[in-house]
Amino acid sequence: MTAERLLLFSAARQQFALNLQEVCEVMEPQQCYPFAGAPPHYLGLINFHGNLTALVDLAGYLRLPGRPVPGKILVIDTRLAHLALRVDAVGSILDATSITSFGSHEDPLVEALLETPQGSVRLLRLETLLNGLEQELQQSAPNNAKPGGT
C-alpha cells in the first residue's frame, strides 16, 4: 500500500519518490564538513537544527553518474535517522490518487515503479536504504592499522 502523498525528486536523470512523511525538510545546499572512514558518497556532516546529520549523495550511493548541479538536500525525519540525501532537484508533491499504475521492481530498494502524470517514478523504501547504508559502513571498517608508515 502506497502512502497518500509522495515527494518527487530526481537524481542522475531518474525520478524517485519518498513517502512525504519520511522527509522532514527540503533545504538548499549548505556547508558540510567531511569526515574520514566512510565511502566517498558520504559528503560530510551537516548541522540540522542541532542534529549532526550525514549527507549522502544519492546518485553516488546508487552507483549512478552524478550531475554537476547545486542540487537540493532532503532531510529524512529525525525520528527515523540522522540522514540527508543530496539530490539533483525536488519536484512536486504527488497525491496517490494520481498514480495511474503500480509495477514491481527487482531492486529491493524500490518499493514500486509508479506511472504518474510526471512520468515513471521509483518509490524508494527508506528502511531498505538505511539498512543498505549501515551494512556498507560495517563492511568499510577502517584500514587495519599497520605500525610505521608516517
Binding site: Q31, Y33, F35, A36, G37, A38, G44, L45, I46, N47, G50, N51, L52, T53, A54, T78, L80, A81, H82, L83, L130, L133, E134, L137, Q138, A141, P142
Partner: peptide, 27 residues
C-alpha cells in the same frame, strides 16, 4: 558529544560528533 544516529552509528571508530566554536563539525 552528540550521537550520530542512523546510519553513521554503525561506522566503526567513531564515538559521536560535536560542533566546534566556529560551527565546524568534527567526528
Amino acid at each position: 558529544v552528540k550521537q550520530l544516529g542512523r546510519p553513521l552509528s554503525k561506522l566503526a571508530g567513531v564515538a559521536g560528533g560535536a560542533t566546534l566554536g566556529d560551527g565546524e563539525i568534527v567526528a
